[in-house]
Design a protein around this nucleic acid. Structure first.
Lengths: 234, 234
DNA sequence: CCGATGGTTCGGCAATGGCCGAAATCTGGG
DNA sequence: CCCAGATTTCGGCCATTGCCGAACCATCGG
């Protein structure tokens, strides 16, 4: 099913399972500075019997996270995959209560990957934020379930290479206001929304993620969004 | 036991446990681009019955990773902690077979935290690397289980503020070659090794980690190691 | 070659946790 | 107000996994 490159969800399960035990977790934590510790020390440290510790260590070894080597009467175990400490740190971050995020602000200041398209127009945090910014700059104005383009708005779009009048005369709804549930806010859809999305991708402010509806904000895009809209991404 | 600030090992267990299940893992993965999906979609996607999916989702909600909201007849779930995707990615990295690393090169290019002291001298990757560099620059020469300081080597140490002759006359073994098991390589120990370690800390190339034998390479140290020894840290 | 000490394996117990079908809820739409 | 479809809750089954004490191995120091 999964191809070469894809990081499948399945990959993470075994490692997560190894970490997902209090005893093993403390062992890994103790080893995380790169020292090699004996089985006994680790047992004491994790607060389990030597027998139990031994089993845990066997699993960690089988999982390729640590390696053990006999040295005299002791057996020293050491972390063999420094990557796991990064993973544990990331987990610790995810574990933090996480500043109570209100729905609207959920992804504010956060991630690239949380931009996305809704059919053919921008949605998600970025979509909502851009729409907001355009309303605030009096380019768009919300009227019921649709947006109206102001006079100066037409100029703004023209500058971006979008001919508003041409779109208005098309068959498709011109500038609908689409409710994005996950942000619980309206954002620009319809012909104009689709065209805008198309342009921002052409300008390489945004890039499509292969195979998904997700969009990545490019580095250029990040600067541009900050400059043009005061939107801070990342 | 644990203080305020410390990221305890215990913190990661609950989150890891949530991820450490195939069904939940695929759900999280599916949600990782920020879209909101219905319980049904997620059930199908994870390949479990609706009942099972519901239980999993309840756990994810309880764990604070996702939030669900009724919308019409469906219930949409979305990821509310973008941090978990970072964590999953980190786990995926740790899961990779990890390029077969020869012991010597294990932490090369890697982590700060993998420097450490062995009693009073430098060990770990940094210790080995520095010793290697000194041998290569003909400051030290390995002779059996000890190092000899060359003529130019004495000058080099002097420049660093270390009086080699004074150390040589001391009671303690002058410059032993200590085998670091975790690197399986020799590195400088004895009086000279201890003095060198002391100096590098005084110079603030290295900093002690409170309460452990671990050392952190400072930013200045990183530059200095690169410049003086061609050692790339981080 | 013997005891002492650290480590691993074995046997068995108990708890956890995943899975499902059936029944109970809830929502939108006649 | 009732039906159909989407979800959740309930009960019960089964596999996994953690934990421990005891027996078994290996190594070191005489």
């Amino acid at each position: 099913m999964t191809e070469h490159v894809t990081l499948a969800a399945a990959d993470v399960v075994p490692v997560a399972a190894l970490i997902a035990d209090a005893a093993r977790s403390s062992m890994l934590w103790a080893l995380s500075d790169g020292r090699a510790l004996t089985a006994g020390e680790l047992a004491r440290l994790a607060g389990v019997s030597a027998a139990t510790a031994s089993e845990h260590l066997a699993k960690l070894v089988a999982g390729g996270l640590v390696a053990g080597e006999r040295h005299g009467r002791h057996r020293y175990y050491r972390l063999i995959a420094p990557e796991v400490v990064a993973a544990m740190e990331a987990l610790a971050v995810a574990a933090r209560p996480a500043p109570p995020r209100s729905a609207g602000e959920a992804y504010s200041g956060k991630l690239l990957r949380f931009a996305r398209t809704c059919y053919d127009h921008l949605a998600g945090y970025v979509g909502v934020a851009i729409t907001d910014a355009l309303v605030e700059r009096d380019v768009l104005r919300l009227e019921g379930r649709a947006y109206a383009v102001t006079a100066q708005g037409a100029a703004w779009f023209a500058e971006l290479g979008i001919d508003v009048d041409a779109l208005r005369s098309g068959r498709r709804a011109f500038a609908r206001a689409c409710l994005d549930w996950s942000e619980r806010r309206y954002h620009l859809a319809g012909a104009l929304g689709a065209r805008l999305c198309e342009r921002l991708i052409a300008l390489e402010w945004l890039a499509r993620q292969p195979g998904t509806r997700a969009l990545r904000v490019t580095n250029a895009g990040r600067r541009a969004l900050q400059r043009s809209f005061g939107i801070r991404v990342l």
